[in-house]
Design a protein around this nucleic acid. Structure first.
Lengths: 247, 247
DNA sequence: TTGACTTATATGTCTAGACATATAATCGTG
DNA sequence: CACGATTATATGTCTAGACATATAAGTCAA
């Protein structure tokens, strides 16, 4: 018998912990194709023997790989390399101010229009409001190094976010304000391409009929809609980048 | 002292396991805003007492929440609700055939052009090839209910995927073939908007100058490029939808 | 006041077991 | 051979500890 300390890894010089090493070993074998989809990974007790550790340690490594959908675990049958099903890419849509400053460019913001009103039927439809209520409608523009970057057309539901009534959207972009005042939301983005209409072309300083990338974002929180926003980007200069891993 | 069986949850009628219950409890408090960003979550030993369980059980729940970036754990300081940093959305870019059939529409495929050649310098630049080699260049079209859905312009690096030389791309779309023959790749997508040129307009049966959504996808596997593909979608009818949670 | 040292503490990892449970495989029976 | 009952087994969850480690907080001297 050995005491815990006998096996407890001494964390020597930058060496990762044992379960992380196991996880990386297996992940590498999968990603290089050495263990192709469908391949059965050694049983937990075999990995225990190979790495000279307890089952919980092996289990922790395998659990994390299962959470990441790299492997599938079936009782009695064993653990198998998954066949990647869907190409899911992670699209990072940052706060526009953060996005621009991250590029090392200077961020500019202009409020074009901001009005508070009782929701019209069009507003209610856009926000999915079932009852009457107040909203804030905002039009604004973001620029990078004084070049128009995107125009924004937003509606905020004041019955969900009453504090928004006191925010100063002339000073702070509504996206940033919401990000810091309404935590942990869910959202749906729809991306499409359109031609710049008269109004958009003027705001973005591009030609009428130039291509624009449009992002529609609906944000909600515990089944209550927070905001609906439509962003127009100049389609020839702006790009959305999504990276992904796994199939 | 109690034996393991005393505490071991009896898995009664559909009740989730204890660590999952702990995880859900905490997640709910965060998502509803009861515990706002920056709030310190009870220490592990407090949660042990509250749920009458061992530290490992609490730890498993907290570890999973930390992996999902909902909380941040700091030694000696405690565990805190994270302030969501970036709006990361999961964009599911399915195999086009799967996407269309999932919509309940009939999938159609036409190979426009397929040729095998020694990589030109343009090919090498597009694929990031450092040495000479053979490639396959493919142009094809996907349609839904006989309406053009997307046109595809693809390059496959035969030195990475030699089996592709024997595939029949007149019968099977190259995307599907690659998905089933080259597991566990990584990729980067770039999304932009352009105007349809003459060639694209004809293939998609839309007007020249109509807006198009363009997806450029580079796929690689263990530092070797597999394929580069550019997809044009009619911008006014096609939409990319990305859902996300947390921020 | 500031900087260096010490201490307390919460998390990080690990062990050697235990019982629970789903299910693949086997066995029996008609 | 078909089908239901039994068994074996791999994973799922949990325990009651242990030592490791980073670091916030407190202590003390210059």
């Amino acid at each position: 018998m050995s005491l815990a300390s006998d096996r407890a890894r001494p964390a020597a010089a930058g060496k990762p912990t044992l379960y992380k090493r196991i996880r990386l070993d297996i992940e590498t074998r999968i990603l290089t194709g050495e263990w192709p989809p469908g391949h059965r990974i050694p049983f937990e007790h075999q990995l225990m023997a190979r790495y000279r550790c307890s089952r919980m340690t092996v289990n922790k490594a395998l659990s994390e790989l299962a959470q990441a959908d790299l492997i599938e675990r079936r009782r009695r049958a064993g653990t198998f390399v998954r066949r990647p099903q869907h190409l899911s890419a992670v699209l990072k849509i940052a706060d526009i101010r953060a996005e621009i400053t991250a590029l090392g460019r200077s961020y500019g913001y202009q409020l074009i229009d901001c009005r508070r009103r009782t929701a019209t039927s069009a507003d209610r439809a856009r926000l999915g409001m079932s009852t009457a209520g107040k909203v804030i409608a905002i039009a604004c523009r973001h620029s990078a190094d004084d070049v128009p970057f995107a125009v924004e057309d937003r509606l905020i539901d004041l019955s969900t976010v009453p504090e928004a009534a006191t925010a100063d959207f002339a000073r702070e972009p509504p996206g940033s304000w919401l990000l810091h005042h309404v935590p942990w939301t869910e959202a749906e983005h729809t991306i499409s391409a359109v031609l710049a209409d008269d109004h958009t072309a003027k705001a973005l300083d591009i030609a009428v009929g130039a291509p624009c990338l449009v992002i529609d974002r609906y944000t909600w929180r515990s089944a209550r809609t927070v905001t609906a926003v439509r962003l127009h980007y100049p389609g020839e200069t702006h790009r959305l980048v999504a990276r992904f891993k796994g199939g």
